[in-house]
Design a protein around this nucleic acid. Structure first.
Length: 265
DNA sequence: ACATTGACCTGAGAGC
DNA sequence: TGCTCTCAGGTCAATG
């Protein structure tokens, strides 16, 4: 689930529920989720403090803790946040829980443990050290920046879109959507894209992600004509009605319309 | 440089 | 019901 729009929705959720409350207790329910910090130091830093504000970059959510540093949340394939009031509503795969002063709790849950929770003293150095590229919805990530991070690549465009070192935020599902909207075959090598296709990809990237953020990443609320809600049913192309195709690109399941996204390479 | 594969984990769902 | 197999929206390392 958690690509840029999903993480943006979780940021909104966290901001609306959990900021400015003193944190009474921190429960590490499964320490395997922690990376680069162990339970005790994490508890020491957070217990008694408050979450000030949050910041999203790509698929990472950073939560400022009393301006002393950042709790870093990455959700892997199956992570999410849940906030609740009554004690028996904790989510199934709760890995980390914060009990707030107001009696409510915020949990980081993750079935598959593929994400990780860590700590950063400074955002920029964290991102730099992790090699994470620019956030694709950052103002500064304009079409020139997009061309720049693609230049010299011979990779399949879908793989390049998903490469967090080039640009951060796009995952398997939205990469498919962007290619579909731009009418580009996901396997097209980057160096064989013409100027029009590249700029169309950029425009679609922005529009798709902004639309998804606007509806909190709820697939059923996306505009008509999107591919995403039809995943897994492998039905008909929402644009031309022809049968959708399922292939592998860099080992990942890929949905496309072979008519609308005709391969030219 | 790039694709592929397997690993990391834990299920859900399909097929038998 | 229960078993086995495949698949899942992320990323990393090893290999060709």
């Amino acid at each position: 689930m958690p690509e840029l729009p999903d993480v943006a929705a979780m940021k909104r959720y966290l901001d609306a529920t959990s900021l400015h409350q003193p944190i009474k207790a921190v429960h590490v329910r499964d320490a395997r989720i922690l990376a680069g910090i162990s339970s005790q130091p994490l508890q020491d830093r957070i217990q008694g403090a408050r979450f000030d504000r949050s910041h999203r970059h790509g698929k990472h959510l950073f939560v400022s803790v009393d301006d002393k540093g950042w709790l870093v949340l990455h959700f892997g394939m199956s992570g999410f946040l849940q906030y609740w009031r009554h004690p028996d509503h904790s989510p199934r795969h709760e890995r980390l829980r914060f009990d707030l002063e107001n009696g409510c709790s915020l949990a980081y849950a993750s079935q598959r443990l593929l994400g990780e929770v860590s700590w950063a003293d400074d955002l920029d150095s964290f991102l730099k050290r992790a090699g994470i590229g620019p956030d694709v919805l950052d103002r500064e990530f304009d079409v020139q920046a997009f061309q720049q991070v693609l230049s010299g690549s011979r990779a399949a465009i879908k793989s390049a879109l998903m490469d967090q070192k080039r640009m951060a935020g796009i995952g398997n599902v939205y990469a498919d959507e962007i290619c579909f909207q731009a009418k580009v075959h996901p396997k097209t090598p980057v160096n064989r894209l013409d100027v029009q296709s590249t700029s169309r990809l950029y425009t679609c990237l922005q529009r798709v992600l902004e639309n998804a953020v606007a509806v909190d990443a709820q697939a059923e609320k996306l505009p008509a004509g999107y591919l995403l809600p039809h995943r897994r049913q492998a039905t008909a192309c929402p644009r031309c009605g022809k049968a959708l195709e399922t292939i592998k690109v860099s080992g990942r399941s890929t949905y496309l319309c072979p008519v609308c996204q005709e391969a030219r390479a």
